[in-house]
């Protein structure tokens, strides 16, 4: 997710824009989405259950780590548990963003929205920011619970290793980056498929890359290094920053409204 977009929104005011976009219209979509999420029991339920499921394994792993593990082994196992927690910001958007375009089309609300002056980019950025906020809230809350469990119930040596600065910083930084990547992938899917369920199912694919990275590390195929972390962060930052452009390019008003592709 582009930080410039967020800054632009904070500045506020109608017409204050980013890349020609109107902050006022993005804010309108953002607010409407949050209101709608809060009253959608399915989304609230999914947002509550999915993260809990993905928090159980790393928490159990943390609490069952023996005190006498060598430091390197302890760091690796804690690193993997935290990496596993990054599936939460990858999975939550699948529940929220899958509805973003195809859900609107199915309930007949897309057409009235697209007959207003809103641009595709504004619509998509508003949707993405509205998905980002609850995703960050849930992911950081889960991480806080995980750290709380470490502090209260894990072996002291394990707790000390879990609460180390670099680990915390990496988790705090990667959470929005992974969420942003996942949100754009799922919105892109939602803009192209013809059924919400298909969008949800395909959207879960967004969690595969973090899962793959976790697996590769746990099988010692790749090793967690600072260089790897910086490279991954840079790639995610680029994808998040340019995601709105890519998704806007696949957002075809005519196909979404009529089911037929626009002849250009």
């Amino acid at each position: 997710m582009s930080m410039s977009v967020i800054r632009s929104l904070r500045r506020g005011g109608a017409g204050a824009g980013f890349g020609g976009m109107s902050a006022g219209r993005i804010r309108a979509v953002f607010r409407k989405e949050l209101r709608d999420f809060r009253r959608n029991r399915f989304i609230v339920g999914t947002m509550a259950v999915v993260p809990l499921v993905f928090m159980v394994l790393p928490t159990v792993e943390l609490l069952t780590m023996p005190a006498g593990l060598p430091t390197s082994a302890l760091d690796t196992r804690i690193g993997l548990a935290m990496l596993y927690l990054l599936i939460v910001p990858a999975m939550v958007p699948a529940a929220i963003s899958a509805y973003s375009v195809i859900g609107e089309r199915d309930q007949g609300t897309l057409e009235p929205v697209l007959t207003t002056p809103i641009r595709a980019e504004e619509f998509l950025v508003g949707k993405a920011l509205a998905a980002l906020l609850p995703t960050l809230f849930i992911s950081y809350t889960m991480f806080g619970v995980f750290l709380g469990c470490a502090e209260l119930f894990a072996q002291p040596a394990v707790a000390t290793a879990a609460l180390r600065g670099p680990q915390l910083l990496a988790q705090l930084l990667f959470t929005p980056l992974v969420a942003g990547w996942s949100i754009w992938v799922v919105i892109a899917i939602s803009a192209r498929v013809s059924d919400v369920r298909v969008a949800q199912q395909l959207g879960t694919l967004a969690s595969l890359p973090p899962l793959a990275v976790s697996s590769l590390m746990s099988f010692n195929v790749i090793h967690p290094t600072l260089r790897l972390a910086v490279t991954l962060a840079a790639v995610l930052l680029v994808v998040d920053s340019l995601g709105w452009r890519a998704v806007a390019a696949v957002f075809d008003r005519e196909r979404l409204i009529t089911g037929s592709r626009a002849l250009r």
Binding site: A28, R35, T109
Partner: peptide, 25 residues
């Protein structure tokens, strides 16, 4: 106004209109 009004059913009447007023700035 399309054939089906396409309202956000979970939102109130005023919230629906507020959203569209926002889209028109």
């Amino acid at each position: 106004m399309p054939e089906s009004p396409g309202l956000y059913l979970r939102l109130t009447v005023a919230e629906n209109l507020e959203f569209f007023a926002g889209l028109h700035e």
